[in-house]
Design a binder for these strands. Sequence first.
DNA 1: TAAGTTAGTTGCACTATACAACTAAGTGAT
DNA 2: ATCACTTAGTTGTATAGTGCAACTAACTTA
Lengths: 240, 240
Amino acid sequence: MTKISASLAFEKPLTSVDVVVFSLLENKLKVLLIKRNYNESEPYPNQWALVGGFVDVAKDENLEATAKRKLLEKTGVKAAYLEQLASWGSANRDPRGWSATHVYFSILAIDDVQMPKNGANTNDAQWFDVIESGVLTTLAFDHADILATAIDRLRSKVEYTSLPAFLMPELFTLKELQNAYEAVLARPLEKSSFRTRMLSTDLLEATPNYKEAANRPAQLYRLKSKIDAVFFQRTFNPTK
Amino acid sequence: MTKISASLAFEKPLTSVDVVVFSLLENKLKVLLIKRNYNESEPYPNQWALVGGFVDVAKDENLEATAKRKLLEKTGVKAAYLEQLASWGSANRDPRGWSATHVYFSILAIDDVQMPKNGANTNDAQWFDVIESGVLTTLAFDHADILATAIDRLRSKVEYTSLPAFLMPELFTLKELQNAYEAVLARPLEKSSFRTRMLSTDLLEATPNYKEAANRPAQLYRLKSKIDAVFFQRTFNPTK
DNA sequence: TAAGTTAGTTGCACTATACAACTAAGTGAT
DNA sequence: ATCACTTAGTTGTATAGTGCAACTAACTTA
């Protein structure tokens, strides 16, 4: 027996990728969950779970490819903000054996999403309200832990980055962007310092258009770059 | 064939854990590297690599346990600052097949480290200077990428956390702590604001002792908590 | 034309920082 | 003893981003 076959003879853990998909719907932060098959021979039948699945070593060139494939299958979205969150692996998180999952999180503008039309069961994918650090539903596996970590990470990054910009449609007003920040952080922000912060970077581009309403029209902005987030030097509201 | 055996029949990627181990030696940031076996049947024989190895599904309860086991084997250190960095997985990063590695990084006080005494080859573990975003040596696998990411993450966290405190011995002066920050960041910091920042949190505890020298003695401090890092509201030197 | 509403600005206070000049406390040479 | 030298530690002033509150701007509707 050579050294190579010895090392490959180790029992290998199961390897999966999960994606925590966030979006904004009616000014509320939402997370996309998938209902698992009603199949008693698989773990957690009929329960809600994160978007995800096993790495397909034939199809997926790398972990991000698995994440993108799963995201595309469930939302129809090709290019989206996608960031690695962390990984969870242990002997007992999956009854089928030692398993490790590489978790990403994604932030989508709801306009871009085409929810799946799965003939048989159109209700197998659903947006859930994010409340505190989770959802009002039991989740499969350790997905409640994972979701809580993703929400924490999202909130802490939103304190000093432009991530909520990825929740916005093509054109939006500064107040709408502020509403998105507030929906994620679950707390109000101060108008003038919010505006100063957003306009002090080259994140946004003013358009010649205004959003008409029964009051003073608001300037419409668009993102300068669809890809990169901007980092600020401080957090909001020093917590004191 | 049942659904279970179908899902487990997938070919599984190799699963490993790597740890990027940082320490401070003579006021220079160092990273611990291990020389791979001189064995032509294994990939990258005789090359330097990060601390790491395959998950042992029989021994390791979870990923962190694998990381701690590897850290203990190579440094003798049991409790250290250990944080997940990210994971890397692809079809071609390991010639033995589709492989995914879960990477942690650790920060150690050099005093705590007992370098291994491996009878045969005592030179198989060595501290390398961190220069720019890497080391002056070729690394096995994609470990140069991983190391660069770890250095970036370390530097960016050091801007707003107390991580360098974990590089210090039991007792240290504020100047020594500042030297550690500067070694990691590879740039000078301003004395008075550094002191104000450090003393404004309850990170440090003044001891009754002073460090004697051929000049004014410096107050010695110790960490209040060995476990948690402190977060600050801003970065150092806003980069214009 | 006035009331109501939301957009957007302005002035002032506060806080953590940067920068520079200062004082404090020791050693060692003369 | 005194003074030069060195490093520890402090102080004063400026600055930048924020929080807060009050203000002005622009539009609709009654």
